[in-house]
């Protein structure tokens, strides 16, 4: 046998033991700080209140609303169909079923967007996808959807369209009854019967 083969074999063995002794590579089920930071700059991490309202009204099956405030706030008021997962429990929740489903759109919200953003960073570190933050939170929700400000008369058309949508959405979310602006003047139809004057009336 050639000596070179022995040398090669010994060398490979040494390399093998070296690999065994190497420290474990960080398990990559977490996004690195760098990735997390670049995710922060992705504008699609926010979703507008208008878009959320639209998705609720059209009963989008992909929408998963998550209220990250605590239980008491959730019980006081929350968006229709929202799940209550307080920030404290966000990592304990069994997300796998709902989050691994790639088509779903998870929308986190709180009173403003700080708590939702914190939940977002935690979930993003675990590499969950399709998570959004409702921009402005419930405070903004009430300003825009529930109690929308009418635009100035000189406003652009799309602004007026948006206001019309918001007003409709407000009606949808507050009770469903349509407040009539101008009274429709339908007069009641009275059927007047002619009084018979004579007791006995002749026939034929």
């Amino acid at each position: 046998m050639n000596k070179a083969f022995y040398i090669l074999a010994v060398f490979l063995l040494l390399l093998g033991t070296g690999l065994v002794l190497l420290p474990d590579r960080e398990h990559s089920d977490e996004a690195s700080p760098g990735e997390l930071l670049s995710n922060l700059r992705n504008p699609s991490r926010f979703i507008s209140t208008d878009k959320v309202a639209e998705m609720i009204i059209s009963q989008d099956p992909a929408l998963l609303l998550v209220d990250v405030r605590d239980m008491y706030d959730f019980l006081d008021y929350s968006l229709p169909g929202a799940h209550s997962i307080p920030l404290e429990e966000i990592m304990m929740y069994n997300w796998v079923d709902s989050l691994s489903y790639k088509q779903s759109q998870i929308v986190l919200f709180s009173n403003s967007d700080i708590l939702a953003d914190q939940a977002w960073v935690l979930l993003k570190r675990k590499k969950y996808e399709n998570i959004h933050i409702m921009k402005g939170g419930l405070n903004h929700w009430f300003e825009t959807i529930i109690q929308p400000e009418p635009p100035a008369e000189t406003a652009a058309d799309d602004e007026i369209d948006r206001y019309q949508f918001r007003k409709g959405a407000s009606i949808y979310f507050t009770g469903g009854a349509v407040p009539l602006e101008q009274e429709t003047s339908t007069e009641a139809v009275m059927v007047k019967r002619k009084n018979k004057t004579q007791l006995v009336e002749g026939g034929c």
Partner: peptide, 15 residues
């Protein structure tokens, strides 16, 4: 900012 700016429940009730 995380304080509720409105009385959510009250507004929803009233409206």
């Amino acid at each position: 900012v995380e304080e509720p700016a409105y009385d959510y429940y009250g507004i929803m009730e009233a409206m």
